[in-house]
Amino acid sequence: MTESPQSPTVLGPGAGALDRGLAMLDHLATVRSCTTSDLARVLGLSRSTTYRLVDRLVKGGWLASDPATGNLRLGPSTARLAGAALGSVDLRSAAVPVIARLVRQTRETASLAVPNGLAMVFVHRERGPRPVAVTDEIGASRPFHSTSVGRAYLAALPDAQLDEQLDTLLRAADSPLHEGMIAELRATLERTRRRGWSEDRREFDESSCCCGAPVYDHTGRPIAAISVAGVAERMEHVMDDIGHLVAAAAAEVSAALGHARTAI
């Protein structure tokens, strides 16, 4: 899915040296490389302040100068800190509290699914509190092409990987897809990318509707999808509202895994 560049940290009038240094690191985590003058301009700092802080951050290993361009980039101290942070967070531990909040917000069933072979597999589900709610066992699988979790994952793939995945699906002996379905599926995935979340309106199950959004790891690779599913008569009138909640939840989990939103 196409994502918008992350806005730079806004520094208030009372920002101290620590706030300014962290803002520099945050900006470089998004743009990857820039000049010291760029930092001063984007963060609204004087050149003298910026050069003084950059010098301290370089000496501490938090920033480094790119040998090829002379531009600044994140340094080895940042990499060590990032590695320690990533090692302390896994997908399920990051997703479970967010999914629990989704259930409270929507009162519908929320789930976490990961790709496995030709399908998505639920690895965590929390049933909504309504008397009639969508339910299924952990470990249940869902096809890529006709479900919100599957479409969310496919739409998040870069075009080349999407082509490979669709080709694999078509060649599989037990594939639910045939060549005549690909054009419509691609159009659905493109709408999903533009909207920011996927939907399944009674397509997998006539009695339910679902919204989904992808979860990315620290490299920007989609690794899972979060969904909210409910009885169709309730869900089909509020899909836009719930879709935005699911997209925000997936983005929160992705951020916890180290994903920085950038333009693809």
Score class of each variant (00 low, 15 high):
M1C: 00
E3C: 07
P13Q: 07
A17I: 12
L22N: 03
L28K: 05
A29T: 08
R32A: 15
S33G: 11
T35H: 07
L39M: 11
L43N: 03
S46C: 00
T49I: 06
T50D: 09
Y51D: 05
L53H: 05
V54W: 05
V54P: 01
R56A: 14
R56I: 01
V58T: 06
W62G: 00
W62Q: 08
W62N: 10
L63C: 05
L63K: 03
A64N: 06
A64E: 13
D66Q: 03
P67R: 01
P67I: 07
G75F: 14
T78D: 15
A79D: 14
R80T: 13
A85T: 05
V89I: 14
D90R: 04
L91H: 07
L91N: 09
R92K: 12
A94Y: 10
P97A: 06
R107P: 04
S111E: 07
L112E: 01
V114K: 04
V114R: 03
P115Y: 10
F122P: 01
E126F: 03
R127H: 06
G128R: 06
P131A: 08
V132R: 10
A133E: 15
D136F: 14
E137R: 15
P143I: 02
S146D: 05
S146V: 12
G150H: 13
A156M: 12
A156G: 11
P158C: 12
Q161G: 13
R171C: 09
A173T: 07
S175T: 14
P176V: 13
L177V: 02
L177R: 03
M181N: 08
M181L: 15
E190D: 15
E190G: 00
E190Q: 10
R191E: 01
R193G: 00
G196S: 06
D200S: 08
R201H: 09
R202T: 08
R202A: 11
E203C: 00
C209G: 07
C209Y: 02
C209V: 08
C210F: 11
T219H: 11
T219C: 00
G220R: 07
A224H: 06
A225G: 01
V228W: 03
G230H: 08
V231F: 08
R234W: 02
R234C: 00
H237I: 04
M239S: 04
M239V: 13
D241Q: 11
D241I: 05
D241F: 13
I242T: 02
I242L: 09
V246K: 06
V246W: 03
A248L: 12
A251R: 14
V253F: 12
S254E: 09
H259Y: 15
R261K: 11
T262S: 11
